[in-house]
Simulated assay, not measured.
Amino acid sequence: MHPDLSPHLHTPECNRLIDLLKACHTENKFLRFVGQCNEIDRELWRCLKKEREENIRNNRRKAQEKHQRIREKIKEAEKIST
């Protein structure tokens, strides 16, 4: 099962794959159960994984920057109080 496939949550590349998968499922009502759309599905999983990994990297970088700013403010506060 995929995560939420709402278009505003994904890149244009993944949105294209989402549209292809939905179209494949619509066109192949019964063949989709025997693997007709599996290749598109695999590509979509790869794309979603790439997005997720990129989000993890970005969030980690932002957290490190935020922690650095906090450390600097603490050092400034210690200088002022001493």
Rank of each mutant, 00 (worst) to 15 (best):
K73I: 04
T26F: 13
E27N: 14
D41H: 11
N55F: 07
A77P: 00
H8N: 02
Q64G: 03
F33R: 03
L31G: 13
F30T: 09
P7D: 05
L17V: 11
N58I: 14
L44W: 00
K66Y: 15
R46A: 07
K79E: 04
A77C: 05
R52G: 06
R57C: 06
Q64C: 07
C24V: 14
I70V: 06
F30W: 09
P3N: 05
S6I: 10
L20C: 12
C14L: 03
N28T: 05
Q36Y: 06
E13K: 12
F30R: 12
K79C: 02
E13R: 09
W45L: 10
K50I: 04
T26L: 11
W45C: 06
I40E: 02
H25Q: 15
E53F: 09
L44N: 00
N38H: 08
N38I: 12
C24P: 11
A23N: 14
E65N: 02
H67N: 15
E65A: 04
R69T: 02
R71Q: 15
I18E: 00
M1G: 10
S81G: 09
C37R: 01
T11Y: 00
R46P: 05
G35K: 04
K50P: 01
L48N: 01
E78W: 00
M1K: 14
R61N: 08
R71T: 11
C14V: 05
R46H: 13
E43H: 12
L17E: 06
I40M: 02
H10I: 08
H2M: 05
R69C: 02
E27S: 15
L48T: 04
N55H: 13
E54V: 05
L5C: 00
R60S: 10
A63W: 06
H10E: 05
K66N: 15
E78L: 01
I80A: 08
